[in-house]
């Protein structure tokens, strides 16, 4: 077996040439859309009661997909649906297209403090269910798109769906360092989950063992647990790589906060659909043109 613990990673070429940017999407918007999609997947995964491995797999598939294809060819919602569906099959916790579509529609249409939902209107209690009701017709349209995008994703990845997540490795490392405690594990897991949202696409650029080492490093440090010198060498992680990962993982919080600030309450909100995206791009072009003038 080729190693089960190695993941296919993005090449430098792929990272340097984003299909979305080549397709006319500004870099900052691409980053925002990646973030928004990941937030949606994570939130939907929780409502669908999917285990974190399914959610994490979905997010990584999502990141991989948009490394290989343009955001103007597949709407964010559709690809979110598709990756959740696909990863639920890959991780043997199947979710139905209907559940997935219901949940994302609910999330995207019901006001909540979440940055991906509309802002709660002042003085209004619960929202009427019509807001997030998926009609049968809409369901069929969305399901068809879901299934189409699922196939696009598989093709884009060359059907390479293997993904090894760092969570178990993380526990393993903590145990081998004899510092197992719920607190360290919790912190480390938190950082691993954070890393899913990183704009540096850490799961596409680093092997799971390095991610686990970095998470253990931060976790132990924040819990003030002392670890032996240069322990990361044992787990095949270079000091430089570790340093980079630590910086990135710590930076996720700031990144997410700035994105949240950017998008929450903003109208129009995140361009989830292709039409929204085109309108958004058009608007930006107009604004850019005005700025130039």
């Amino acid at each position: 077996m080729v190693s089960l613990l190695r993941n296919p990673l993005a090449t430098a070429d792929q990272l340097a040439s984003s299909p979305s940017q080549a397709d006319g999407i500004p870099a900052d918007l691409e980053t925002s859309l990646r973030w928004a999609g990941s937030e949606l997947i994570q939130a939907a995964g929780i409502l669908l009661r999917l285990p974190q491995k399914t959610v994490a797999t979905a997010i990584v598939l999502f990141q991989r997909f948009y490394l290989l294809s343009s955001m103007r060819s597949c709407a964010i919602t559709d690809s979110c649906h598709a990756v959740i569906f696909l990863s639920s099959k890959l991780t043997e916790h199947p979710a139905t297209p209907r559940d997935i579509i219901n949940v994302t529609t609910y999330l995207l249409n019901t006001p909540s403090p979440s940055p991906i939902s509309p802002a709660p209107a002042a003085g209004q209690g619960s929202t009427p269910p019509e807001e997030h009701y998926v009609t049968e017709q809409e369901y069929y349209i969305r399901r068809t798109r879901l299934l189409n995008v699922e196939m696009e994703i598989l093709k884009a990845c060359g059907f390479q769906t293997h993904l090894s997540l760092p969570y178990t490795l993380c526990i393993n490392y903590i145990q081998s360092l004899s510092v197992l405690s719920a607190e360290v594990v919790k912190k480390s897991f938190g950082y691993l989950t954070d890393a899913l949202l990183s704009p540096s696409l850490l799961y596409l650029t680093h092997q799971p063992n390095s991610l686990a080492v970095a998470a253990v490093y931060i976790g132990a440090r924040e819990c003030e647990v002392k670890l032996p010198a240069a322990w990361w060498d044992v787990f095949d992680c270079e000091r430089e790589e570790l340093g980079f990962l630590v910086v990135c993982m710590k930076g996720v919080k700031e990144f997410v906060e700035s994105e949240r600030k950017l998008w929450s309450g903003r109208k129009p909100g995140v361009p989830w659909e292709l039409d929204d995206l085109e309108i958004h791009l058009e608007r930006r072009r107009v604004l850019d043109g005005e700025a130039e003038v």
């Binding site: 299909p19 006319g24 999407i25 500004p26 294809s69 343009s70 696009e152 884009a156």
Partner: peptide
Amino acid sequence: GPSSSEPPRKRPL
């Protein structure tokens, strides 16, 4: 090309 005044063409996937 991004941010050109002409809307860019969508590239085949």
